[in-house]
Design a binder for these strands. Structure first.
Length: 586
RNA sequence: GCUAGCGUGGCUCAAUGGCAGAGCACAUCACUCGUAAUGAUGGGGUUGUGGGUUCGAUUCCCACCGCUAGCUCCA
């Protein structure tokens, strides 16, 4: 490895991860020098940096990070050689016991019998590690290391085990690159949807209802515009829409399996001595609708959509703006079909996803989640369904990664993780294959043969949660929504009071054409009105003054700062109309 | 839920064991102005909630509520 280092650059993921992994060892070494009593857990590289978990009597403070960074810089300057060596199991355990590292001992115990147990030594510091590593701490640029956070983490991610202190860090071969990275994080903070949501008047959260978002007028317009698009695109793909009750009795939830498998997350109540639960999912209601009348094979696949408001009691610590809430609208749909239709339906659904995501300029990665420990149905059924999902997307030439044991309790699923413009990903779409609920609700259709058959179904959402999706696109567009989606598309800015009436008249005409328009009739200077409309990220500003009144024009300015000059209202309406139309159904 | 940090006008943030302050926003008045902030004046706070320590608490202590970060990446 060492001699090959020169061939590698920081652009290579392998080299980057090796670099960061060695950084984590340097961090651990610095920790041991400053705080010998601290016990070492694990310290891997991650997608953007590295961390190390420590067991410490006293949690760390931000101030200590600077001290650790300084010690790390020292270690880099010392140019310590990293040397790998192996030990037989018993000796490895003894070695770590003597060093007083109980977590390392546990790790060695859990390694398979035939595992090679390797260590890396740098100066006075040695760590259990599979490697690989850089050949010297001198290869790390000391002043381009930044310890970014210290936080708690459970040993082995298990909430029943020890709480460790995790220190996160990031490092680059050049100081400039570190600064650039930190600037990018700062940029990300500026487009945080929680901040933009408040600044743009989209939504709010209150102590009175943690995790229950309130939508404000602008946010509601955005949401309705989004749903309007959703309905049009689903109509095109042959969906019908229903709405099912928000609360249903216990018996139903027992039948669906939710009462047994999902009760901890459900809001329940008692009405007239009967247990009720607020729905955490829409499916059981959808089952009742399907079962309410007989079906023929000729109707299949039957695509039934529902924008359903669901409530889930998420852990308080998991709440996060609109990304993780306790009540949200799913753009749900259930597609009922024959076994033969499964692959086609899955592919058709993926095509629908592609169309929708492309409208927003969002790309995605797919994860296949397989059978969890807590599940219903047979292993054979699960495997068969997993194979169908795999086959369907493979045939479409799509890549996916497998997420073992992360399926829903009733079936395997394909999860679509959307990347925002900063490369962070959020799970939005999902396609879940389910042959359990049709069984439990005894769903049937009459086949060509005149016999009753059991359909299979998928549960699927494209946007996922309307709330989360709004959060994702708010950050993706940094609040500057495309014109078709912007809560306000046009703002009239009269230069003086003399133009107020004219502005109102223009506004009324645009409104009649179906555009979302506002007038800034305040007695303020035009510069101020422009500044504020720009900060509101309204796509078009129409400046109107004496000149425009005389000529019957509007002076158009884009939020980007571009001055499009004076034009007739008809010309402007055509311009905006085209821009809006481009983004609608193809 | 756990660990740590935080909670001061609508927002962003000062300050202090001894009268709580600024900018923005808001209101009023003047200015009627052509492409990113006109000026003046004014109103607005039981410092998250409840308890405790103290002559005195917004500040110190305790509890609760809420928020923020992490708890997925595994030598």
């Amino acid at each position: 490895m060492a001699e090959e280092n020169n061939q590698y650059t920081f652009e290579s993921e392998t080299y980057r991860k090796t670099y960061w992994h060695t950084c984590s060892h340097v961090l651990a070494q610095a920790m041991k020098r400053l705080h010998p009593e601290v016990k070492l857990a694990i310290g891997p590289s991650i997608d953007n940096g590295f961390y190390y978990d420590f067991d410490t009597p006293e949690p760390f403070t931000e101030g200590q990070l600077a001290e650790l960074e300084a010690e790390m810089r020292k270690i880099c300057k010392e140019k310590l050689k990293l040397e790998r060596f192996e030990l037989p199991r018993a000796e490895a355990i003894k070695f770590m016991e003597e060093k007083g590292e109980p977590f390392k001992v546990e790790l060695i115990h859990d390694l398979p019998e035939d595992a090679v147990i390797s260590f890396y030594r740098q100066g006075e510091f040695t760590d259990l590690c599979a490697g690989p590593h850089l050949d010297s701490t001198g290869r790390i640029k000391g002043n381009a290391i930044k310890l970014t956070a210290c936080n708690a983490a459970y040993w082995r991610g298990d909430s029943n085990r020890e709480t460790l202190q995790r220190i996160y860090g990031v490092a680059f071969p050049k100081k400039d690159e570190l600064d650039e990275y930190l600037a990018k994080l700062e940029e990300a903070r500026k487009r945080d949807h929680r901040r933009l949501g408040r600044e743009l008047g989209l939504f709010m959260l209150r102590d009175e209802g943690p995790g229950f978002p309130f939508f404000l007028p602008k946010g509601m317009t955005l949401k309705n515009t989004l749903l309007d698009y959703w309905r049009r695109v689903h109509k095109k793909y042959g969906y019908v829409e229903i709405s099912t009750p928000i609360m249903l009795n216990r018996q139903l939830w027992e039948r669906s399996g939710h009462w047994d498998h999902y009760k901890n997350n459900m809001y329940t109540t008692v009405i007239d001595d009967v247990d009720f639960a607020v729905k955490p999912m829409n499916c059981p209601g959808g089952m009742l609708v399907y079962a309410s009348e007989p079906h023929s094979y000729k109707e299949l696949p039957l695509r039934v959509g529902e924008i359903g408001l669901v409530h889930r009691h998420e852990l308080s610590g998991a709440l996060h703006g609109l990304f993780r809430v306790r009540c949200f609208n799913q753009d749900d749909a259930h597609v009922f079909m024959t076994r033969d239709q499964m692959q086609d339906v899955i592919q058709e659904t993926v095509r629908l996803f592609d169309e929708v995501y492309s409208v927003f300029g969002l790309s995605y990665t797919i994860e296949l989640s397989t059978m969890p420990e807590d599940h219903i149905g047979t292993v054979e059924e699960w495997e068969r369904n997993q194979d169908i999902l795999k086959a369907a997307i493979t045939a479409m030439g799509k890549d996916f990664v497998v997420n073992e044991g992360d399926g829903a309790f009733y079936g395997p699923k394909l999860d679509f993780h959307l990347a925002d413009s900063l490369g962070r990903t959020w799970q939005c779409g999902t396609i879940q294959l389910d042959s359990q609920l049709p069984e439990r609700f005894e769903l049937e259709y009459t086949g060509e043969d005149g016999q009753k058959h059991r359909p299979v179904m998928i549960h699927r959402v494209v946007l996922g949660s309307i709330e989360r999706f709004i959060g994702v696109i708010t950050e993706h567009f940094a609040g500057a929504f495309p014109a078709w989606l912007a809560p306000v598309q046009v703002k009239l800015l009269p230069v003086t009071d003399r133009a107020a009436e004219y502005a109102e008249a223009v506004s009324a005409r645009l409104d009649a054409m179906g555009f979302r328009v506002e007038v800034d009739g305040r007695n303020e200077k035009i510069g101020k009105k422009i500044r504020e409309a720009t900060l509101e990220k309204i796509p078009y500003m129409l400046v109107v003054g004496d000149r425009d009144m005389e000529n019957g024009t509007v002076s158009v300015r884009h939020r980007s700062g571009e001055d499009l000059g004076a034009m007739s209202l008809e010309e402007f309406a055509a311009l905006l109309g085209n821009e809006v139309k481009e983004m609608t159904i193809k």
